[in-house]
Each structure stands twice: as structure tokens, then as C-alpha cells.
Amino acid sequence: MSDCVFCAIVAGTAPASIVLDEPDVLAFMDIRPFTPGHLLVIPKRHASGLAHLDPQDGARVFDAGRRIATALRASSLPIEGVNLFLADGVAAGQEVFHVHLHVVPRRRGDGFGLRAVPRTPNRTVLDGTAETIRAALSVGSD
């Protein structure tokens, strides 16, 4: 964990522009923001990815993200919407391996967003995929 920059922020040994500091959650401004006001919400207890995240910590992170998104929309910042984004794993774009929720203020034409072209699979494919996920959920709940 010594190379975890977010752990250093939690410990107070790395600089951060803090927005919210609660017993289990910390929120601070992203140093490479996609849009003005972009910030990160993290659990104070280290978890490298979702599989290692304590469910209570996950709930606290999401609730803090929700509250901050609501505050952003009520602020004087020019915001028309908010995205919550969490990358889990390298293929998903995770670069810092401490769970973190991006809270990204949005305005029309700001240039941020998902660029993939959605596919339209048939119902048989959707049902098969749903079954695969249901089976994995039942294994994970044992």
C-alpha cells in the first residue's frame, strides 16, 4: 500500500483539495479534471478494486457521491448534470488502484462522455448473458 497515492492523501502526507472529510469517506478535487468541479470520492479504508471493497464502505462512497452531486447542482458552478463513474480494473480504465468514484459535473458540449457505439443483441443473447451473470451471482453468494 505504500505506493497508493490515495492512501497518502487519507494519511495527510500528500496534498489534496478536500471537499468532504468524514470518518470513513474522503472527497477531494481531481488533479486532472475532465470538467470544472470534477472530484473523487474514496473510502478511507484501502480497497484496490470492487471485489475487495467492504459493502458498507461502498454504500458510504456512493451516498457521499450522491450528496456531492446534489450540492454541485445547487452551487453557483455552471452545471447542467452530473455523471458518477467508477472504473474497476485496467480494461475499464482504472489507473489508481484504490477504489474511487468520479463525480463529474456536466454541461452540454463539454466533450466528456462515453463514445462507444451500443450494440443491439437479440433477446436470446440477452437471456444467455443474464443467465451467465445470475450463475456467477449465486456462486459469489455462497
Results as ranks from 00 to 15, higher is better:
Arg119Lys: 12
Val25His: 01
Arg108Ile: 12
Ala27Cys: 05
Leu77Ser: 07
Gly93Glu: 10
Ala87Leu: 11
Phe62Tyr: 13
His38Leu: 06
Arg32Ser: 13
Gly58His: 02
Val117Thr: 15
Val117Asp: 14
His38Trp: 01
Ala47Asn: 11
Val139Asn: 11
Gly81Asp: 13
Leu137Gly: 09
Ser2Lys: 12
Gly113Cys: 08
Arg107Gln: 10
Ala71Thr: 10
Gly89Arg: 08
His98Ala: 09
Leu126Tyr: 04
Met29Thr: 08
Leu72Thr: 05
Leu26Arg: 07
Ala14His: 14
Phe6Val: 07
Arg108Tyr: 10
Thr124Ala: 15
Met29Asp: 08
Asp57Lys: 01
Thr35Ile: 02
Ser17Cys: 03
Asp3Pro: 13
Arg67Ile: 02
Gly89Ser: 03
Ser17Ala: 13
Arg108Asp: 14
Ala69Met: 06
Val125Lys: 12
Thr13Phe: 02
Ala69Asn: 05
Thr35His: 01
Pro105Lys: 01
Asp54Ile: 04
Gln94Tyr: 11
Thr129Tyr: 14
His100Trp: 06
Asp21Gly: 06
Gly81Gln: 01
Ala16Cys: 13
Ala92Asn: 13
Phe97Asp: 11
Phe85Lys: 09
Leu84Lys: 06
Val125Ile: 15
Asp3Ala: 14
Phe28Met: 08
Gly140Gln: 14
Ala136His: 14
Gly109Leu: 04
Leu50Asp: 10
Ser76Met: 09
Leu126Thr: 11
Thr124Trp: 10
Asp142Ser: 13
Leu137Phe: 11
Leu114Lys: 00
Pro118Cys: 02
Ile18Gln: 09
His52Asp: 15
Pro78Val: 08
Arg73Met: 15
Leu72Ala: 03
Asp21Lys: 06
Val10Pro: 01
Val99Gln: 00
Leu86Ser: 08
Ser76Glu: 14
Asn83Leu: 03
Thr35Val: 04
Pro118Thr: 04
Ile42Asn: 03
Phe85Ala: 15
Met29Leu: 15
Val19His: 01
Phe85His: 12
Phe6Ser: 05
Arg115Ile: 11
Glu22Tyr: 07
Ile18Lys: 08
Asp21Glu: 15
Ser48Trp: 07
Pro118Trp: 00
Leu50Met: 14
Ser138Gln: 15
Gly93Ala: 07
Ala64Ser: 07
Thr35Pro: 03
Leu137Asp: 12
Thr70Gly: 13
Ala14Val: 10
Val90Tyr: 11
Ile79Cys: 08
Val117Met: 14
Arg115Ala: 13
Leu114Pro: 07
Pro33Glu: 06
Leu72Pro: 06
Pro105Tyr: 07
Asp127His: 05
Val125Ser: 12
His100Ala: 05
Arg66Met: 03
Arg67Val: 01
Ala91Cys: 08
